[in-house]
Nucleic acid binder design. Structure first.
Length: 906
RNA sequence: GGGCGCAUAGCUCAGUCUGGUUUAGAGCGUUUGCUUGACAUGCAAAAGGUCAGAGGUUCAAAUCCUCUUGCGCCCACCA
């Protein structure tokens, strides 16, 4: 007794057992043809990552699935790894070297990358250590990193294969440019956010009226814009061809203010007559729509901006100013030359860098793209045909909608940390100046591009001219261009390894909704393209962890709850259980610190129940053969009840896990253990805890319960299980309990619960009338149902201590209620002599209240049963049930009246 | 402009897909009583809900359909 503390302390167990599992190789998986595989590839966290609540939830769910299937007998692999996270990691290391006053440019590419690798070696495994703290049972021997040599080979191979299939092209397009990170971004990396902006109305004078200083409406056209600084790059103004206001101006010229460049007025149906003034400035190098117009009407493309967001030499006197400073200055200048008509507040939705939240600049530059439509087609099919299923299924629609409107994917990034594009150039053959703005045909015809070499290995010399003056493309690939290969690149495709054959396709992908487009969709496309098979069967999308007010947790808001602090304080088990308990399938989680009490208290409850059992369990003499009791039908009612209840619960649990209802799974175990096993079962057997069958059943149920709970709470279950008599090495490799259908007895469960209600009713009465706790009661019962009557006779005796009952008798006929008080539970009448001990008026009031409710209920039932439609149309079983219910209610009414009469005489 | 989610007890949410076994559940909080040898991180009990509103379908609606209101999210090139 002294050896088990009365308060559970996770610190004594968690690290100890994790080490034990790892050292015993319990996490590792090997292809085994005699077993079914179950495999999850982890959504690789960024190497820069530190564990947040989103990770905690995501990985807890995965670990539950993994541990469950492992116990179910699958060859189970959870493959871990980290993502090199191009921009994020580069930013981190840049910040670090900035402390020494260095920039990456000063350091040079090679040195800088060396620094990043050093950083990765030092800090890159932080998140891995944190996942271990959480209890994640990953096969760490297979830890992958997207920048490993073998993985990088896969990335190159994929690039080249796509190139060979002409699914990769290079061209000059308007892309999302982050002036802070100074790189292109894909559309997904530049999410739109609404910002408070302005709509500026600017007068563009007609060329023929240039000399007139006093502008009148006939002498100019007003254009509306949200980004006035881009006017420096205007090469036209467009109006709708049918717009009466402007028809006469089409084909004429305007003078671009401040720059004094002559620009044409063109007509195109793309222009919305209702917006602004109906005339739109056209800046082909700085706006995607204007770009299209520029192509269509062969306008000039004037880039006015440097990669860092300052204006370049094309911006005349504004050169060198930052884009926002330039905007301010331009507005001032327009104002002073009376060319600004008005400014109105205007909300605009604009792209922001998903890494640094800087406002994106639409920017014309030469980039590499993947043609997505051909890849998307089969990926749409597999989801439509149900080969891949989303849980909850509403995400299917989101996925399909995106897939059906898919845009080409810009995959080149102007950063240094990442997979360098396997494209080489021969200086001798042709110079290609990146970011040089051209009006050339796009996409560029790569096959005819002299001096461009696409190769798995760095070529020694140019295959055309033999020159050795060769250099590699400066750009690296989008981080997601490596992540989208994750389910097979982690097995080092295209090598046909045993692992790849055995574990691919993986079983399920567990992730958050933000990542459906970035990753899930693309993995499906890559799997189908390169493996000719889906990458996973199920996609489980869980919710986002938010704070109690529904905001995302973020450092800047200061509303972060750190999972590691929670683990430090209450342990990983409690954290895991609490999270799972409050996470309904696919629903966002609103978190606050007090929610973790649930898990902490539950740990303690389990600990103490186990403590009670361990203190009383005769480990030496326990008979493990449950069959003996069953065969001889010697098992007591309470033991049959707890076993039946356990297996009923287990059945529901299996169903819940299969449908990804993890909160239901947690809830079922919580309720079973706390309110059925502890509150009733253990309390009932406590006085006879040493009886052999009680010894056995309490042990069995606890042990099986621990196995069921293990996927959610791996540590405490192992700790207790190890203290119980056990055969194998660890609970995590024990088998999941089988449902014993023959033990489930619903009728018995119902009856026993009715008996519990009797106890509750009596406790309630004692409380209501403040009966002295030492007062022992004598009760009499009348039960119409003979079967139930037998049950009560043989069972109630074990329960008397729970309600302070001294004796009870079961009567053959309805008793007289004279001088007694009565209570009714279902169809059981209970009465007892309490003369002089209770407040009669109070009791009368209580019974009257009960009667009023009963009258209403009976009226409703009668009305229902008088309804011919109901009798005719409802299933006969339902009608029968309603009749039965009515009869019971009427019996009850009758008894209540008797009780009321009887009470008058007390 | 499209699409989605949510609205149920004071608070946070289950239950809704598959209508009738639930007199609508849980946890937290509140109230009351317990220092009985597993556990006060506990035990026993209580109070608390016209299931957002309106209409419809049905013998029967928290549950299915339509609309309205209020919050939240995602997508989209209206300058």
């Amino acid at each position: 007794m002294n050896e088990i503390p009365s308060c559970y302390n996770p610190k004594n167990t968690e690290d100890k057992w994790y080490k034990f599992w790892e050292e015993n190789g319990l996490f590792s998986a090997t292809p085994n043809p005699s077993k079914e595989p179950f495999c999850i590839v982890i959504p690789p966290p960024n190497v820069t990552g530190i564990l947040h609540m989103g990770h905690a939830l995501n990985n807890t769910i995965q670990d539950i699935l993994i541990r469950y299937h492992r116990m179910k007998g699958y060859e189970t692999l959870w493959l871990p790894g980290t993502d090199h996270a191009g921009i994020a990691t580069q930013n981190v290391v840049e910040k670090q070297i900035a402390k020494d006053g260095l920039t990456r440019q000063e350091l040079g590419r090679e040195k800088f990358i060396e620094k990043v690798w050093q950083w990765k070696e030092k800090y890159g495994s932080t998140i891995i250590q944190q996942l271990k703290k959480l209890g994640a049972s990953c096969d760490w021997k297979r830890l992958r990193f997207t920048m490993d040599d073998a993985y990088s080979d896969v990335v190159n191979e994929v690039f080249i294969r796509l190139y060979e299939k002409e699914l990769i092209y290079q061209g000059d397009y308007i892309i999302n440019w982050c002036p802070r990170c100074q790189t292109a971004l894909s559309d997904e990396e530049a999410p739109h956010q609404e910002i408070e902006g302005h709509l500026y109305y600017i007068k563009y004078p007609l060329a023929s009226k240039l000399q007139i200083t006093n502008y009148k409406s006939q002498n100019y056209i007003v254009v509306a814009t949200t980004r006035p600084e881009t006017m420096l790059g205007d090469t036209a103004v467009a109006v709708h061809p049918k717009d009466r206001r402007y028809k006469k101006f089409i084909g004429k010229s305007l003078i671009l203010p401040l720059i004094n460049r002559e620009i044409k007025i063109i007509a195109d149906e793309m222009v919305d007559r209702k917006f602004g003034t109906g005339a739109v400035k056209v800046t082909p190098a700085h706006d995607p729509n204007d770009y299209l117009l520029g192509k269509k009407y062969k306008l000039d493309f004037i880039n006015i901006m440097n990669p860092d967001g300052t204006l370049n030499e094309n911006a005349s006197i504004y050169k060198g100013l930052d884009r926002f400073a330039a905007r301010k200055k331009i507005i001032e200048d327009l104002k002073s030359s009376e060319l600004l008509e008005k400014i109105v507040p205007y909300k605009i939705s604009a792209g922001h860098c998903y890494r640094c939240h800087t406002l994106i600049e639409p920017y014309l530059s030469r980039q590499w793209f993947v043609k997505m439509k051909p890849l998307a087609k089969p990926a749409i099919e597999v989801v439509k045909r149900g080969k891949i299923k989303f849980y909850p299924k509403r995400w299917t629609k989101v996925y399909l909608n995106w897939m059906e409107n898919i845009q080409d994917w810009c995959i080149s990034r102007q950063i240094w940390w990442g997979h360098r594009i396997p494209v080489y150039y021969c200086r001798n053959c042709q110079q290609i100046d990146k970011l040089q703005i051209s009006n050339s045909e796009s996409p560029i015809n790569l096959k005819e591009q002299a001096g461009l070499i696409i190769s798995r290995e760095k070529p020694e010399k140019c295959p055309l001219c033999g020159s050795t003056d060769i250099y590699q493309d400066e750009d690296v690939l989008d981080t997601w261009f490596s992540s989208w290969l994750w389910p097979f690149a982690t097995f080092y495709w295209p090598k046909e390894s045993e692992d790849l054959k055995y574990f691919y396709p993986t079983s399920v992908l567990v992730t958050a909704p933000e990542i459906i487009f970035f990753w899930v969709a693309r993995m499906i496309m890559a799997g189908l393209e390169f493996m000719q098979d889906i990458p996973f069967h199920d996609v489980y999308i869980h919710g986002t962890v938010r704070d109690i007010e529904g905001r995302k947790m973020s450092k800047s808001l200061g509303n972060i709850i750190d999972p590691l602090e929670i683990i430090e304080y209450i342990g990983a088990d409690a954290l895991r259980f609490s999270l799972i308990m409050i996470t309904a399938t696919g629903q966002d989680v609103f978190l606050s610190e007090d929610k973790f009490k649930t898990g902490r208290n539950f740990c303690n409850k389990i600990w103490n129940a186990a403590r009670l059992i361990l203190m009383n369990l005769d480990k030496e003499n326990i008979n493990f053969d449950l069959c003996i009791f069953f065969k001889e039908e010697k098992l007591s009612i309470v033991n049959r009840w707890i076993l039946s209840t356990f297996y009923s619960t287990l059945k529901k649990i299996e169903k819940a896990i299969r449908s990804y209802n993890f909160n239901e799974y947690a809830n079922l175990l919580y309720h079973f253990f706390w309110h059925q096993f502890c509150d009733w079962y253990l309390e009932i057997i406590k006085p006879n805890i040493k009886e052999p069958q009680n010894q056995l059943v309490m042990y069995k149920v606890l042990e099986k319960f621990l196995r069921c709970l293990h996927p959610i709470m791996p540590f405490i279950t192992e700790e207790i299980w190890q203290r119980l008599p056990h055969r194998s090495n660890s609970i995590m490799i024990e088998s999941w309990p089988h449902i014993q259908e023959q033990i489930i007895d619903k009728k018995l469960e119902d009856d026993v619960e009715t008996i519990f209600e009797i106890i509750t009713a009596i406790r309630n009465l004692r409380k209501e009338f403040s009966l002295n706790k030492d007062l022992k009661l004598n009760i009499s019962l009348y039960i119409k149902d003979n079967r139930k009557s037998q049950l009560i006779i043989s069972f109630l005796g074990e329960l008397l201590h729970l309600a302070g009952i001294d004796r009870f008798e079961v009567l053959k006929e309805i008793p007289s209620y004279r001088e007694k008080i009565g209570i009714i539970v279902k169809d059981i009448n209970i009465f007892m002599r309490l003369k002089g001990l209770i407040d009669v008026e109070k009791e009368k009031k209580r019974i009257n209240k009960e009667r009023d409710a009963l009258i209403l209920e009976i009226k409703r039932k009668i009305a229902l049963l008088k309804n011919n439609n109901f009798i005719k149309k409802a299933p006969s079983a339902i009608v029968e049930k309603e009749r039965e219910t009515l009869k019971q209610l009427q019996d009850r009414m009758h008894t209540l009246k008797e009780i009321l009469n009887g009470i008058e005489n007390i």
